[in-house]
Amino acid sequence: MIPVAWYLILSGVLFAVGLAGVLVRRNVLVIFMCVELMMNAVNISLVAFARSFTGVRFAGDAFVIFIITVAAAEAAVGLAIIVSMARQNDSIDADQIDLLKD
């Protein structure tokens, strides 16, 4: 019997780690991986909630499936962007690309 709070704390920890990774790392690919980690952290909490609240039925599971779908789509597009970015700037270093300024 595992209290739901454990899952939530785990989720929070993983999310925080992902967040720190996004901020600390310079490699765009690693940053992207950290984003995936943050999503997984959220997925855990969703499933844990789904198991503790009966009224919502399969909402948690369904959400997780959609998130995984979106994550897959995101990975496809995001990696495409990274490829194109690397082709243009010859770098995938987050600290050398300031295109958002324009």
Binding site: V22, A94, D98
Partner: peptide
């Protein structure tokens, strides 16, 4: 504030 480095924007978001 508009540095153009998306890491900064992530920082602001955080």
């Amino acid at each position: 504030v508009q540095t153009g480095f998306f890491g900064n924007y992530a920082l602001y978001m955080a």
